[in-house]
Computed example of a mutant assay.
Amino acid sequence: MKPLKIRQGLLSILLAVALMVAGCNGSPTESATSDNVNPVGDSTVSPVAQTQNSSMSNLPQLEGKATVVMTVNGSPITIEVDGTAAPVTAGNFVDLVNQGVYDGVAFHRVVREPQPFVVQGGDPQSKDPNVPMARLGTGGFIDPGTSKERYIPLEIQPAGEEKPLYSKTFEEARIKAQPKLKHSRGAVAMARSRLPDSASSQFYFALADLPFLDGSYAVFGYVTDGMDVIDNIQQGDRIESAKVVEGLDNLKK
């Protein structure tokens, strides 16, 4: 049994590395030579670090929960967005949905082999059909108010704690607890580069339980209906529409 356990452990490590270093079309075999990180991100991005006491106050926050319905391939996906444990991350997502940022955006990264992993989208560049697929995964939301890309801090709440940890992974903060929002199948989380505070608009759906990502990436909600739709998403499929159907009054700007 030991060799099996070792192989399973190595597979989890390879998937985690793929998540951290693969580009938009990255695969575990490409990850060893790629400089890009997480589900995806541009390694050249250097956002200003955000903390709980500084520019985070300028970001939208969700006080409570909200429900988002995405339509993909003509079928709905219902997401419960949890601002109780991830107010900034959830607020950013609900705000982008409400602005129509995700309407027409493609899923540029789908990883199901060697085992179910993630379906990732949210790069606004993908709205332009002339942008090559190889470039997708490097873009984020440009705030029209500042004409700059909006970044949000890494935000993960340890189980049993009243507030989230910001701008550090659990490993960096030496936290042994589990996160309140885990990477179970159907989790929705933010993609980022190697920099903790570099998430913008890209997100991913977990296709399976991914405990090796817990404490490193920010989960902000869960799919409550429509996982069968996600299971059938292919690279290049688009979000036809995304709407906040409940809880928009919990969004504070």
Rank of each mutant, 00 (worst) to 15 (best):
M1S: 13
M1Q: 06
K2H: 02
L4H: 12
K5E: 14
G9V: 10
L11Q: 14
S12F: 03
V17D: 03
A18M: 11
A18C: 15
V21T: 15
V21A: 09
P28Y: 03
P28A: 07
T29M: 11
T29V: 08
E30Y: 12
S31V: 14
A32M: 08
S34E: 09
D35W: 10
N36E: 12
V37S: 13
V37P: 00
N38G: 15
V40D: 14
S43C: 07
T44Q: 11
T44H: 13
S46R: 15
Q50M: 14
Q52S: 13
N53E: 08
S55M: 12
S57V: 15
N58H: 01
V68I: 11
T71R: 14
V72T: 09
E80L: 11
V81Y: 11
V81T: 08
D82E: 05
V88P: 00
A90H: 05
V94A: 03
V97K: 00
V101M: 00
H108R: 01
V111C: 02
R112G: 10
P116D: 09
F117A: 06
F117K: 01
V118Y: 06
V119D: 00
Q125N: 14
Q125D: 15
S126D: 07
D128L: 05
P129T: 10
N130Y: 13
N130A: 15
V131L: 07
P132W: 10
M133W: 11
M133D: 08
R135M: 14
G139A: 15
F141K: 05
G145Q: 13
S147G: 11
E149G: 02
E149R: 14
Y151P: 08
P153Q: 05
P153N: 03
I156A: 07
E161T: 14
E161K: 08
E162F: 11
L165Q: 10
L165E: 01
T169H: 03
F170D: 03
A173M: 06
A173S: 07
A173P: 04
A173W: 06
Q178H: 10
K180D: 07
K182S: 00
H183I: 04
S184Q: 07
S184Y: 10
A187S: 07
M190N: 05
M190V: 05
A191G: 14
P196C: 04
A199K: 09
A199T: 10
S201K: 06
S201R: 09
Q202H: 04
Q202G: 02
Q202A: 06
F203A: 09
A206C: 15
A206W: 05
D209A: 02
L210A: 10
P211K: 06
F212S: 13
S216D: 03
V223C: 04
D231P: 08
N232A: 14
I233V: 15
I239S: 04
I239W: 01
S241R: 13
V244C: 06
V245F: 00
L248C: 03
D249M: 04
K252V: 15
